[in-house]
Design a protein around this nucleic acid. Sequence first.
DNA 1: TGTACATCAGTGAACGCGCGTTCACTGATGTAC
DNA 2: TGTACATCAGTGAACGCGCGTTCACTGATGTAC
Lengths: 195, 195
Amino acid sequence: MLHMRKSPIGKAKTRQRIIEAASTLFRAHGVDAVGVDAIMHAAGLTHGGFYGHFASKEALVAEVAAYALARSAERWERVSDAEGLTGIVDSYLDPAHVAAAERGCVLTTLGPDVARRPGAWEALGKSVERMAAVLERLSPERGRAGALAALSTMVGAVVLARLAEGDGAGEVLAAAKEAVLGQPPAARAGVDHVL
Amino acid sequence: MLHMRKSPIGKAKTRQRIIEAASTLFRAHGVDAVGVDAIMHAAGLTHGGFYGHFASKEALVAEVAAYALARSAERWERVSDAEGLTGIVDSYLDPAHVAAAERGCVLTTLGPDVARRPGAWEALGKSVERMAAVLERLSPERGRAGALAALSTMVGAVVLARLAEGDGAGEVLAAAKEAVLGQPPAARAGVDHVL
DNA sequence: TGTACATCAGTGAACGCGCGTTCACTGATGTAC
DNA sequence: TGTACATCAGTGAACGCGCGTTCACTGATGTAC
C-alpha cells in the first residue's frame, strides 16, 4: 500500500476516526447491519487493524453509543446557552433531525439496540442526566419530573416521526413541540389525519 | 421425524405460529440478531419450511411488525373501554412493560429498526393512528395534537426507562405518567438523581 | 367401508457469502550513535 | 548531520461459523373409486 499512518501520535486520531465512522454507520443502519470491515473501510483502513484499537465489536458499540450521546449532551448545553429552550426543542424536533438519522440523537436511532446491551447503559446514563439537567434549568417551574417528561416526549416524537409517511412526521413533531414549549395551537394548518 | 403437521387447514395456523415466535424473538433481541433458523425452531419446525410461508425474512419482518403493533392497538381499544385513560397509561408506563420487551410495544422495541425498512411503515401507520385515536377520545379537550404528544411521551419514556439502571426507570415512568395524566406531583418519594 | 393415489406441508442437506476474530508480515517512524 | 536499528500501526490472508435461501425428498392427509 502506498499511504500508511504509523506515527505513535496518530494512533489516538485513528481510533477516533474509527469511532466517528462507526457512529455514523451504526445510526444509519443499526449495529448488527454494519460489519467491522465496513467501519474500517469508512475510516480509510483495512479490517485487520481494528483489534489494535478495540477488544471486540461489542466494546466499540459501547464506546460509540457513549461518545455520540455525549456529543449530543454537549450540543444541548451549548445551544441552551445561546438560544434557550426553543433552540433545543426546535432543532431536536426538526424534520432535518428526523431525516438525518446517521447524525441524529442516539436515543432515537439506537435506543432499543443499546438497551439490549447492558454494558453500554452506564455511559449513556450520564449524558441523559446532562440533557435532563439542561431542560430543568430552562424550565425550573416544571421540575425534574417535567424535564424527564419533556425529554421522553422529544425522543418518542422523533421515533414516531421516522415511522410516519409524508406529512405525518411534521404533525407529530409539531404536536410534541406544542407540548414541550407550552405554545397554544396558534394558526394551525389544515392538516388532518395524515399520520 | 415422528410428528408432522400436514393438513391444509393447519397451514394458516403454522404461519401464525411463525409470526408469533418471530414477534417475541425480534422484540427481545432485535431483527438482525435473530435468524430464520431460530424462529422456525421456536415455532417447532425446521428452517427449510420457512419459505413455504414467506417470500423472505424481510417480508416476515414487515408482517410481524404490523401484526404486533395491531395487537397493541386492539389492546388499547379494549383497555380504554374498561379502564379509561389511566388504565392505558398505567399499563404502558409500568415497570413490567419495561422489563418484558419481548412482549412490549413494537414502537419501543423495534421502532428505529423498522424505521430503516420503509416497507413496514405503511402497516404500522394504521395502528399508530388507532392508538392516537384512543388517546384523543379519552382526552378530547387536548385534541389530536395532545394525543400525538401523549403517545410520544409514552413511547419515549419506555425507551429511556429501558436504558436506565436501577431506580432511574421508575423515575422516568412516573414523570411521564404525571405529564400524560396531568396529575399533580402529589406525595413524591425522596428520589434524587438516580437516572 | 376399504383401498390406491395425488397433493403438498414440512424436512434436512447443501449453496455461496459475509461475519468477527487471529496472526504472520511489512514498512514508515523516532531514536541511538 | 547522516546512518543503522527497534518499534509498532496498519496490512491482508486465513480461520470457523452462522447467515438467508434453495431444492430434492418424504410421508400424512383428503379424495376417488
